[in-house]
Design a binder for these strands. Structure first.
Lengths: 83, 83
DNA sequence: ACAAATTATGCGCCAAAGCGTATATTGGCC
DNA sequence: GGCCAATATACGCTTTGGCGCATAATTTGT
């Protein structure tokens, strides 16, 4: 994978795609991440900035993780390019 | 680069390394990220969970970015895996 | 089209991140 | 040791993310 995640919205989109890929509902993901369905909804929309802990919990529940790399070194894809 | 970042502490360590690599003080980084020196100190220690926005601002100031990838898989990725 | 499931919002509340300011504490360097 | 830059803490205050609970709004399946 290695999707670029520079903004809360990009992160939300990535999370949503990963969740649907697993066939999970927001409620199911919320349970696994120890959050509420409403919180998942907000995170996926990216409109309200979340806490780092919440994002990390969601990523872990999806078996995903952050990696930190230098910008503009083309090691990832922009999520917008997907459709 | 592409450093693993699963916990706030790991993220803080990465940020600190990148900052020192650039020869910046916490105060300088704070100015560029629109935060306080004290906040940078807390983020680098990773002891107090920060807000996602703060982390993203710091990464951007350091010309870094998050990438999201599957756990337990190497950094250099096969694009074919995605579909 | 209808019912069921899923997702998006609303409201009051609490905990805490970040702020401003200021002060310890540490670390280099001469 | 002594001095100054750099970093870690402190306190009161404001803002807000996430909660519980609930309900709209939307999507999906038959």
């Amino acid at each position: 994978m290695n999707d670029l995640a520079r903004t809360p919205r990009q992160i939300g989109t990535i999370i949503q795609r990963a969740r649907k890929k697993r066939g999970w509902t927001q409620t199911q993901l919320a349970e696994r991440a120890g959050l509420r369905q409403a919180t998942i909804s907000l995170i996926e929309s990216g409109e309200k900035p979340a806490k780092l802990d919440s994002i990390l919990a969601v990523l872990a529940a999806l078996d995903l993780e952050f990696r930190v790399g230098e910008r503009s070194k083309g090691a990832g894809r922009h999520i917008e390019e997907l459709f």
